[in-house]
Structure formats: C-alpha cells, structure tokens
C-alpha cells in the first residue's frame, strides 16, 4: 500500500512535508505519504516531479475547505498507520466507526463529496455505509430533507411513482 510507511510519528525529520492549499485559501502542511492518498495531489506531484524541493510545492485543492481537510488529514494518517501493520480488519472497522459515529449529517455530506473528489475510496465506502444506515426505513420527505434535495417531480409524477409500490410507504419511522 503506502510507499513510505515509516510513519512512526510526525516528528521524524526525514518525513517530507507537502503544502495543500484549501478552497478557502488556507495552507496545510501534511506528510507526503498522506498527500499521495489524495488523487488530485498525487497527480499534481507527479506533474511537478522535477521540482527538487518538495517543501516548495503547494498543491491546490480548490474543491475542499480547510475545515474538511483538517478532519480528513488525521483520519488518512491514522488509517495509513493501521494499514501498514498486519492488523485485523476488526481494528480498522472500529477506527472507522469511531470516526463516523459523531459526524453531523452536514459534515457527513461534506466529507462524502471531499472523499469522492479526492479519490479516497476506503473513506467514501465507509461514509456511504453510514449514509445508507441513516436513510433506512425513512420517509421520502425525510430522505429529501436529510440530503438537501429539491423535489423536481410534479405532484402527478410523484403520485404515479408512489402508486407503483404503495406498500413501501407504510409504517416508516415517524421522525
């Protein structure tokens, strides 16, 4: 997996740092092996490989805010450390659970978009799982509100769709 998995701690001076620039213009320093987990950053670093000094490279990530990046970076870093060891899947699962358990719906949405844009598929999978759990057994109205969706169906179209499987709409959670 990770090419440079000498990730004992961030204090090791040999660990190369890269600067990521968020959509809101903040510069965040991360270990190169963490930055390489983000597809756009990986592409950018490959394109600029002639640059001798990694420290001088600033990778623009125009679709991700500093707030979201600063949640993602520690997650990816720890996840890399876990994957580098011969740990049980259970441990990774527990780590993922801990990370997602207290996410607000809003943050969940932001992280999903960021994970998709950055190509962090293992995180995207976990977030999809959480989203699926949160919309299970819920009403149409709830799902719309949860995901901030505008209903583009006309009332007639919606009535027709509901009539195709009326049994599905009975007894969903009342919240």
């Amino acid at each position: 997996m990770a090419s440079s998995s000498s990730s004992s701690s961030c204090s090791s001076s040999s660990e190369k740092k890269i600067t990521l620039k968020s959509s809101d213009g903040e510069a965040l320093n991360v270990e190169k092996n963490v930055a390489l987990e983000f597809e756009p950053a990986k592409g950018f670093l490959e394109d600029n490989s002639e640059e001798a000094d990694d420290e001088a490279i600033v990778v623009p990530l125009p679709n991700v805010s500093a707030a979201v990046l600063s949640e993602l970076i520690p997650y990816v870093k720890q996840r890399l450390e876990l994957s580098a060891k011969p740990v049980q899947k259970k441990l990774i699962k527990a780590f993922d659970d801990q990370f997602t358990r207290h996410l607000s719906d809003d943050k969940l949405g932001e992280l999903m978009l960021a994970a998709n844009y950055l190509g962090v598929n293992y995180l995207l999978d976990v977030l999809c799982d959480v989203t699926a759990d949160r919309i299970k057994n819920k009403s149409v109205e709830y799902v719309r509100e949860f995901l901030g969706i505008q209903n583009d169906f006309t009332p007639e179209e919606e009535a027709e769709l509901r009539a195709q499987c009326p049994w599905a709409f009975e007894g969903v959670d009342q919240d």
Partner: peptide
C-alpha cells in the same frame, strides 16, 4: 451504491425522492 446498501423497500422509496 448507497441505495444498494439499504433495503428493497428503501430503494422503492428512494425512486420517488427526485429524478
């Protein structure tokens, strides 16, 4: 993918959420 992780019934509900 998200919808496939729910249930058959949720998939039917999802199809009326939006296009």
């Amino acid at each position: 993918h998200i919808i496939s992780l729910t249930t058959l019934r949720d998939a039917c509900i999802s199809s009326t959420v939006c296009p």
